[in-house]
Design a protein around this nucleic acid. Structure first.
Lengths: 192, 192
DNA sequence: GTCTATAGCGCGATAGAC
DNA sequence: GTCTATCGCGCTATAGAC
């Protein structure tokens, strides 16, 4: 059953391509060939490339943050929530057995070559992640599961930095297990 | 006094451009215009783009690792060495008052759109950094300055991940002070 | 909503003069 | 070692038929 509409197919394929090769190495032709229509057909749905990328980031951000909110709202312990957060990026974003970067990380790296309005959207995606991470960290602090000095906000930024850097490094080195090892170690550090 | 030869000028300009906009948004024309020669003049020194990028990464890797070796060989404490390591990426690589990414980070993000041989060179740059970080961490462990559970190798990868992720995030958010805050917090965590 | 066809440009790269 | 000139291609994007 293939009831997915073309607009969604375009977004799916574009996201996959960007996560693999980057924004500037992905073309309308790549997209059109992958879904079996022509160049002009893609332009019908997304007249400009910056518009396509903007729509893509919005969908991605909504999806990830919504999954994150589900994790936060669950009755699990803070430590489990944090692990599920890390697993989200490991499986959903490094999914499909091939090495994919985080869309947010890739757009961040290439952000200076994109529409200026996109920079703020990418930054907001980062901030939204950090805000949710801070909630989990505070919860763990209060329950005694996490023990660390200083404010949870800075720690949340540190955790998100490690997550993003860990994905980058694991992908380049071709060792998918490294990401897990890095964040497992980080959890242990947070537990004190 | 301008005694810098053209080959060096090309490498300097290309590196600056890649650190800002990425490999795939940088062109021979950008380079030639920046140094005041023509497209063909750049091709004389670097016939292919992959060759140029390879030469660039080699120079960059040699420079960074040599500075790192100097830091390690210095009589400073392990904590000071680690701070100097972080400052190296903060000042030398985010230099020139504008937001630049780490060349290694940028090539890592865009690595799937580059010559396959470059992937291994980028990975080796990461590993070389991690190896040196591990030396500093072990030194700090032995002197009692650092206290952490588990092997220094995994911790070195965690530290390098945080450094790379921190540079990415700070750059996108336009807040250069964030990088420093993240790594300052990491140092405090390592001190236990 | 997708097609054919094409405009217009920037790209990496090369030949050959100087 | 840098130049002019150019090739051939891929790109984003658009016009107009179906």
């Amino acid at each position: 059953m293939n009831t997915v509409d073309t607009r969604t197919k375009i977004l799916d394929v574009a996201q996959d391509l960007i996560q693999r090769v980057g924004v500037n190495a992905m073309s309308y032709r790549d997209i059109s060939e992958a879904i079996g229509i022509r160049n002009a057909g893609v332009h019908y749905h997304f007249p400009t490339k910056d518009g396509l990328i903007t729509a893509l980031l919005e969908r991605y951000s909504d999806d990830v943050l919504s999954l994150l909110d589900q994790i936060i709202a669950s009755p699990e312990s803070a430590e489990t929530k944090l692990r599920r957060y890390f697993a989200l990026f490991e499986t959903t974003l490094l999914s499909g057995n091939q090495d994919k970067a985080c869309l947010g990380g890739m757009l961040g790296a290439e952000n200076e070559s994109l529409d200026a309005a996109l920079t703020e959207k990418v930054a907001n995606f980062y901030r939204a992640n950090e805000r949710r991470l801070a909630v989990i960290l505070v919860e763990g602090q209060q329950s005694g599961a996490f023990k660390f000095a200083g404010d949870a906000e800075t720690m949340a930024v540190l955790v998100f930095s490690t997550l993003q850097g860990g994905m980058l490094l694991s992908r380049v080195k071709g060792d998918g297990t490294e990401y897990r090892a890095i964040l497992e170690r980080l959890v242990r550090m947070l537990k004190g």
